Simulated scan of single mutants.
Amino acid sequence: MTRTLGPGSLKIGETGSEREWAGHLTKTALVPSTSSDDPVAVLDGTEVAGEDTTTWALTGTILDNFEFDSLQNFAIANAGKEMPFVWTPNNDGGTDYSGTVRIRPIGIGGDVKKKNTNDLEFPLIGAPTPGELV
């Protein structure tokens, strides 16, 4: 049974030109958010249940990297674009997750003379697809 996050992989981009970002992440997760509509009252005195809507986001924390080839600069250059991703929580087997994310900018910087971190949140288009690692 695999229960530890890492070592793993996070690839973003089209097959053949995808970029590996695992070396930048100190934390990563796929996070669901579910909202529910209010129930609707009907004439006979009963209620029709409201619908649930679930959205997903690829979230994480990165170590700042001030090199030109950083995840922050990638996110700036590709902000608003929808790109495929594959996230492998642990390379030793189990499951990977794929789908499409919308790239958003990531903060840069923080405290002077410290290794700073910044959080990222890339919303998914639809739900992630689990796949079995071979």
Results as ranks from 00 to 15, higher is better:
1 M>P: 13
1 M>F: 11
2 T>A: 06
3 R>P: 01
5 L>K: 12
6 G>A: 09
8 G>Q: 00
9 S>D: 06
10 L>R: 02
13 G>V: 13
13 G>N: 06
13 G>P: 03
13 G>Y: 09
16 G>K: 05
16 G>D: 07
16 G>A: 07
16 G>N: 07
18 E>P: 01
18 E>I: 05
22 A>I: 12
24 H>K: 11
24 H>D: 09
25 L>C: 04
26 T>W: 04
27 K>E: 14
28 T>R: 14
29 A>I: 04
29 A>M: 13
30 L>Y: 04
31 V>N: 11
32 P>N: 01
33 S>H: 06
33 S>G: 02
34 T>C: 05
35 S>K: 15
36 S>C: 05
36 S>I: 12
37 D>L: 07
37 D>G: 14
38 D>G: 13
39 P>V: 08
39 P>W: 15
41 A>H: 08
41 A>R: 15
41 A>L: 11
43 L>R: 14
43 L>M: 13
45 G>N: 10
46 T>P: 10
46 T>N: 14
47 E>V: 06
48 V>G: 03
48 V>C: 02
51 E>V: 15
52 D>C: 01
52 D>F: 12
52 D>W: 08
55 T>C: 04
56 W>I: 05
57 A>F: 03
58 L>N: 00
58 L>R: 02
58 L>G: 00
59 T>G: 01
59 T>A: 10
60 G>N: 01
60 G>V: 03
60 G>H: 02
61 T>R: 14
61 T>F: 03
63 L>G: 06
64 D>E: 13
64 D>Q: 14
64 D>P: 01
65 N>H: 07
65 N>Y: 11
66 F>C: 03
67 E>M: 13
68 F>E: 14
69 D>K: 12
71 L>F: 15
72 Q>T: 15
74 F>D: 04
77 A>R: 14
77 A>G: 05
78 N>A: 07
81 K>R: 15
81 K>T: 11
82 E>H: 07
83 M>I: 08
83 M>P: 00
84 P>L: 11
85 F>M: 01
85 F>T: 02
87 W>D: 04
87 W>P: 08
89 P>E: 08
90 N>A: 09
92 D>N: 15
92 D>K: 12
94 G>F: 05
95 T>W: 15
95 T>P: 00
95 T>H: 14
96 D>G: 12
96 D>K: 14
97 Y>C: 05
97 Y>G: 01
97 Y>A: 03
98 S>F: 03
98 S>V: 08
98 S>Y: 04
102 R>Y: 04
102 R>W: 09
103 I>R: 00
104 R>C: 09
106 I>C: 03
107 G>K: 12
108 I>Y: 05
108 I>N: 08
108 I>L: 13
111 D>S: 13
111 D>C: 01
113 K>N: 14
115 K>R: 14
115 K>M: 12
116 N>C: 02
117 T>C: 05
117 T>D: 03
119 D>G: 13
120 L>G: 00
120 L>Q: 00
121 E>I: 06
123 P>N: 04
124 L>C: 03
124 L>K: 00
125 I>H: 00
126 G>T: 06
126 G>S: 05
127 A>Q: 12
127 A>P: 01
127 A>W: 07
128 P>F: 03
128 P>T: 02
130 P>I: 10
133 L>N: 02
133 L>H: 02
134 V>P: 14
